[in-house]
């Protein structure tokens, strides 16, 4: 294997690990501003993670190996997903081995084990959270795959590197493609559901009855909780970079082009600053939905993704 792509891969993973809490801090900061509150520092998520790592793990008496392994599996699967998505460069060795369908599967593994761990302890809230999470997942995943297939139809490949390359090299005709516009709308809705943001789930809730993701990880503490929280931030970061790679890939460095990396980094910062603001606008503009309305929300996402696919055949 060549040295340069390997270096790129490692750089990207390090960037993911380092920048994910920063982005989470940025989203929180903008949210506080939009609500007229004083915001915590941008570095607060780092401090939270460091604090959790230094604390002891409290395990329930009846916790099995699933409960103890899950944080590492979730963290590992999320980190591996970061090796597939072209965040800075399309020149990734891992990208050749796994396409976007494998990416959806990686997220599914993480979710599956989180749901198992939620039920493992045997508390009522854990089981409830797992049940809700799987309900949402069973609706979000088909929609996600449909949106992904629409992207692959437009670029004739399921490899994310190839999709990013094709779209960034195309002209203005590509930008006006209705299929991609539909797929983008669907993707935004799915990303909100998958990363557990308002209106599907509220990441800041302290009310057990309204929790979805939080309910599953209520029993975690210490380094386990730190890993899960970190993985959650990375997931948000990854969904943003997946959207950037598939729909706004301008600026991502081409194959073998080491000199374009600093520019790619600047583009990335601009895109993520903007994405954070848009996410906050969505979150402050909408109220959390009733759980039974989520099926309609994700049904609409599925509809949009399917319409995108049909539009590709009908109009393009």
């Amino acid at each position: 294997m060549k040295f340069l792509p390997l270096l790129m891969e490692i750089m990207q993973l390090l960037l993911l690990l380092a920048a994910a809490p920063l982005f989470a801090g940025w989203v929180k900061m903008v949210k506080c501003w939009s609500q007229g509150r004083t915001s915590p520092s941008l570095l607060q998520p780092y401090r939270d993670i460091a604090k959790l790592f230094s604390k002891d793990v409290v395990l329930a008496e009846n916790a099995s190996w699933i409960f103890r392994f899950t944080p590492y599996i979730v963290f590992g699967a999320t980190l591996l997903a970061g090796g597939i998505i072209p965040i800075l460069s399309v020149d990734l060795p891992l990208s050749a081995t796994a396409d976007v369908i494998a990416l959806v599967a990686l997220f599914a593994i993480a979710r599956f084990f989180t749901a198992l761990a939620g039920m493992d302890i045997g508390t009522a809230f854990g089981g409830m959270g797992s049940s809700r999470e799987m309900t949402i997942a069973s609706l979000a995943e088909p929609a996600m795959l449909m949106a992904v297939f629409t992207m692959s139809l437009a670029s004739k490949s399921t490899s994310l590197s190839h999709i990013a390359q094709t779209i960034s090299q195309s002209d203005i005709h590509m930008a006006l493609r209705p299929s991609l516009a539909f797929a983008f709308l669907a993707f935004v809705m799915i990303a909100i559901a998958e990363t557990g943001r308002i209106p599907v789930d509220n990441p800041e809730t302290h009310l057990e009855l309204t929790m979805i993701h939080e309910a599953m990880i209520l029993e975690y503490s210490g380094r386990h909780l730190a890993l899960i929280e970190w993985a959650g931030m990375m997931k948000l970061f990854l969904f943003m970079s997946l959207g950037a790679a598939a729909f706004f890939p301008w600026g991502i460095a081409g194959a073998g082009n080491m000199a374009a990396i600093p520019l790619a980094l600047i583009y990335l910062i601009i895109k993520f600053t903007f994405a954070g603001v848009v996410l906050v606008l969505i979150e402050t503009g909408l109220a959390k939905m009733r759980l039974f309305r989520v099926t309609e929300f994700l049904g609409a996402a599925f509809l949009l993704a399917t319409l995108g696919m049909l539009a590709h055949f009908i109009l393009e």
Partner: peptide, 9 residues
Amino acid sequence: NFLAAMVLL
């Protein structure tokens, strides 16, 4: 075509 897609939407 784009406008047609919007009409359908």
